[in-house]
């Protein structure tokens, strides 16, 4: 499968994760989110941006509990909890948010 942004075709693997991390743009994130039936809000963007920063610094996508702990610390417990994260990303905050953030599927994603 692939996504299309401004007439440009962006390649992905069979699960819809983009294959070249450098292809990512905020516009592409909106396109992926739409394909996932996710409406991007500020909270969605906060998670996506956190994931991208984390990957940039450590070269891995964090596990869900690491993500939730970090969001809780930076944005408070109303956002940084399991239930709310799954409301934002129904198919799993790590799996689905990483896909929208243009990162590989997280290591240890169980």
């Amino acid at each position: 499968m692939s996504y299309e942004v401004d007439g440009q075709e962006i390649a992905t693997d069979e699960e819809g994760y983009i294959t070249n991390l450098a292809d990512w743009t905020p516009e592409l994130a909106e396109v992926i989110a739409k394909a996932e039936d996710v409406e991007m809000t500020d909270e969605h963007w906060a998670v996506v941006n956190f994931l991208r920063d984390y990957y940039e610094e450590y070269q891995i996508a964090p596990a869900v509990r690491v993500l939730i702990k970090a969001i809780k610390k930076s944005m408070g417990p109303e956002v940084g909890n399991n239930k709310y994260m799954y409301e934002l990303f129904p198919y799993g905050p790590a799996k689905q948010a990483c896909k929208i953030a243009g990162l590989p599927k997280p290591t240890g994603c169980v």
Binding site: E57, Y58, A63, V66
Partner: peptide, 12 residues
Amino acid sequence: NFSPTFRALGDY
């Protein structure tokens, strides 16, 4: 380069 990943271990 996976050396930066060692710095994430504390989160785990």
